[in-house]
Simulated scan of single mutants.
Amino acid sequence: MRKTIVLAAFAAALAGVMAGCARQNHDRFQTFSPVAGLDGAGLYDRILTALRGTSQDRLAAGARMTAELQGSIVDCMRAADFDYTPAPYERTAGGPQTPGDLTTLAPIGEGNFGLAEFQRGVAEATDKTINPGYTTLTTDQQRADYNRAASACGNAAPQPREFRPDGEVKLIGELEQMFLAIEARPDITALRAEYGTCLQAAGFDATDHLSLFLLVQSKFPLSTTGGAEMSTTKQWATAVAYEQRAASVDATCRVELRETAMAIAAPQLAQFAATHAAELQRASDQWAARRLLP
Rank of each mutant, 00 (worst) to 15 (best):
E110M: 11
T275M: 06
R58M: 09
T136H: 10
G203Q: 09
R291K: 13
T136F: 07
S55G: 11
T224M: 13
E183V: 05
P96H: 04
L105S: 02
S231R: 14
F220N: 07
L269A: 09
G203R: 01
F220C: 11
A193Y: 06
W236M: 08
L210Q: 09
F113H: 03
C76Y: 06
A60L: 11
C76N: 04
F163P: 06
Q200I: 08
L257P: 10
A19F: 09
G114P: 06
T104S: 14
A246R: 05
M77Y: 10
D83Q: 13
P34W: 05
L7V: 03
T275Q: 13
T225W: 05
P158Q: 03
F272D: 00
G95P: 07
E68K: 12
A289K: 07
Q159K: 15
A9N: 09
T197Q: 13
Q177C: 00
Q286T: 04
E279F: 05
D250V: 07
A79G: 04
G111C: 04
A265T: 02
P96W: 01
R58D: 10
A149P: 10
Y89F: 15
I264E: 08
L48N: 04
Q70L: 05
P186K: 02
N155S: 15
G42P: 03
Q268K: 13
R64A: 15
A150R: 14
A261C: 08
T207A: 12
T224C: 11
V169M: 10
A19I: 11
I47N: 00
A41E: 12
L105H: 04
